[in-house]
Design a protein around this nucleic acid. Sequence first.
DNA 1: ATGGCTGTATTATGGCACTGAAGCACCTGG
DNA 2: CCAGGTGCTTCAGTGCCATAATACAGCCAT
Lengths: 112, 112
Amino acid sequence: MTQSRPVYLKLRDQIAAAIIEGLYPEGAMLPSVRALAAEQGANPLTVAKAYQQFQNDGLVEVQRGVGMYVVKGAAELLRRRERDLFLREEWPEIRARMERLGLKPADLVEQS
Amino acid sequence: MTQSRPVYLKLRDQIAAAIIEGLYPEGAMLPSVRALAAEQGANPLTVAKAYQQFQNDGLVEVQRGVGMYVVKGAAELLRRRERDLFLREEWPEIRARMERLGLKPADLVEQS
DNA sequence: ATGGCTGTATTATGGCACTGAAGCACCTGG
DNA sequence: CCAGGTGCTTCAGTGCCATAATACAGCCAT
């Protein structure tokens, strides 16, 4: 009934947002899989799955037995990548939907 | 890897969009479960599941043995409902995300 | 009445995503 | 060395989604 996005995707977005916002600066160590799992009430594996994608994209460096570190330039890279994805994949659909609903982007600019 | 939203949800959105846009005017008969299933390459049951929600919301009238018809005022009702949902649930998140990515709504208003 | 179209219910099955628990492999500090 | 922290692998369980095959129930034109 409720949308219920997968947990690992929520975490992924959340982590990405944190990196972009500089909450995890370049060179900083990310929270350990277990620590973040405990904090979020999730399974360590689920957190690992969320981290996985950042490794694949080369945005974090893994030091086995030590931790995962934010690569230099990760924030800017991530921002650029997300921005492109947003403009290319999501915005057109959102735009079409708003039009269908009779909402103009200009009307929403002034919202709180 | 790919998002792969459930088929029945895709159908639901697609039908809702069609109703709002007047492709299925008030009083018109919706495509039969089997017909839409064949057209979309889906299972009749899956289509039925998509239709189900519209029945529950009283947006379509079922005439068993005949077909399903769009109720009067369904389009406006649907538009209003979707609009509220959009403004309350989705827009704030989209807005936050755009801000995080360094995108201003005003910049996108002029897009094609 | 009958055939053909509607929606609906039932049951079973396969697939896949998500989550969980336990254990392995690795590094660091004492 | 070893105890504690890392990430990572494996096995298994659960639930949702989609499909399939049948059968049932209602309406209508022929």
